[in-house]
Simulated assay, not measured.
Amino acid sequence: MASKQAQRLAARQQLQQRMAVKAEEERRKRTVLWSIGGVAALVALVLVAWGAVTVFGADDDEAGASDPDVAELVDEAEAASDRCADVEPSGEGALGTPTEGLTDGRPAQDVYLECLQMSTPDASATESCMYTSVDGTSPTPLSVQPAAGTQKMTIVTNLGTITAEIDTAGAPCTAGSFTYLAKEGYFDGQQCHRLTTESIWVLQCGDPDARGAIEAGTPEMAGAGSPGYQYEEENLPVEAEANYPAGTIAMANAGAGTTGSQFFIVYEDTSLPADYTVLGQVTSGLDIVEQVAAAGVM
């Protein structure tokens, strides 16, 4: 029979073994818990990051920062932003005899848009735009357009240069349309086809077919042309006296939702129904339009 000392020694060894086993089990549990906790923390970080992108990154998406199409649009606009830099007013254009008493018709002084350019748009914010092809095949601008700040429009006419500050933030779809058309040279060589000199005071331009109609001897046909697409009005003024003040550049239309490329420059404070998109404000060259108005209508 083993001595009591030997029994106590054996019992102590068994206890130590059990404690060692228990300690190992506790260590394994802690390792598992730490692993689970680490995974949970990682998942939490991912969720927080995703939430931040969703909440704060929405502006980046809206701004087109991650939209390659918007980035390409801006690059193309920048490449075309100085396309009129070397174009000088030609001084060409006939001065006809105005018709006495006529206050709405073709300008007696020919006005040609010899080159039109738009500065690079700011895409730190964007806006969804719906451009509808008139015939189902005509190309349209990108459906997401820059919608921040302003742009500079430069119009080289045969009589001099007109510049304007375009309200891109207020009229992003209209500004986007002008940027799209201008880089393609759409307005170059066009003729302004309408002048009004009583009650409303505007010079209207932007019809791609007007010059052809005038030169063909059918000026009454001018005013029906379009870029092949149309879109909704935006940035409308309030109904008020002189709601289209002198220097305003606004868009002509043939009814709601038919804005295209035709625009008018207001040379004297004018009251109109608040139906026409306000695109921007002339910053220099309004005297050119006043000169055309002084020559009268025929």
Score class of each variant (00 low, 15 high):
residue 13 Q to D: 13
residue 16 Q to S: 09
residue 16 Q to A: 14
residue 18 R to V: 10
residue 21 V to G: 00
residue 22 K to N: 11
residue 22 K to F: 10
residue 24 E to S: 14
residue 26 E to D: 13
residue 27 R to M: 08
residue 28 R to T: 12
residue 29 K to Y: 12
residue 29 K to G: 04
residue 30 R to W: 09
residue 32 V to G: 03
residue 32 V to P: 03
residue 36 I to K: 10
residue 39 V to F: 08
residue 41 A to E: 00
residue 42 L to W: 07
residue 43 V to C: 13
residue 43 V to E: 03
residue 44 A to Y: 05
residue 47 L to N: 07
residue 48 V to F: 05
residue 48 V to D: 08
residue 50 W to P: 00
residue 52 A to K: 04
residue 53 V to R: 10
residue 54 T to Q: 13
residue 54 T to V: 12
residue 55 V to F: 13
residue 56 F to I: 08
residue 57 G to F: 04
residue 57 G to M: 04
residue 58 A to K: 07
residue 58 A to V: 06
residue 59 D to C: 01
residue 59 D to A: 12
residue 60 D to P: 02
residue 61 D to W: 12
residue 61 D to Q: 09
residue 63 A to Y: 03
residue 66 S to H: 13
residue 68 P to Q: 07
residue 68 P to Y: 07
residue 68 P to I: 02
residue 68 P to D: 09
residue 69 D to Q: 14
residue 73 L to W: 10
residue 75 D to E: 15
residue 76 E to S: 11
residue 78 E to V: 03
residue 80 A to E: 05
residue 83 R to N: 04
residue 84 C to K: 00
residue 85 A to M: 06
residue 86 D to P: 07
residue 86 D to C: 06
residue 87 V to Y: 00
residue 87 V to W: 05
residue 87 V to F: 03
residue 90 S to P: 09
residue 90 S to D: 12
residue 90 S to F: 03
residue 93 G to L: 00
residue 94 A to D: 15
residue 94 A to V: 10
residue 95 L to N: 11
residue 95 L to H: 05
residue 95 L to Q: 13
residue 95 L to K: 08
residue 96 G to M: 03
residue 96 G to R: 07
residue 97 T to H: 07
residue 99 T to D: 10
residue 102 L to P: 02
residue 103 T to L: 02
residue 103 T to H: 13
residue 105 G to V: 04
residue 108 A to Y: 01
residue 108 A to I: 01
residue 110 D to Y: 02
residue 110 D to C: 02
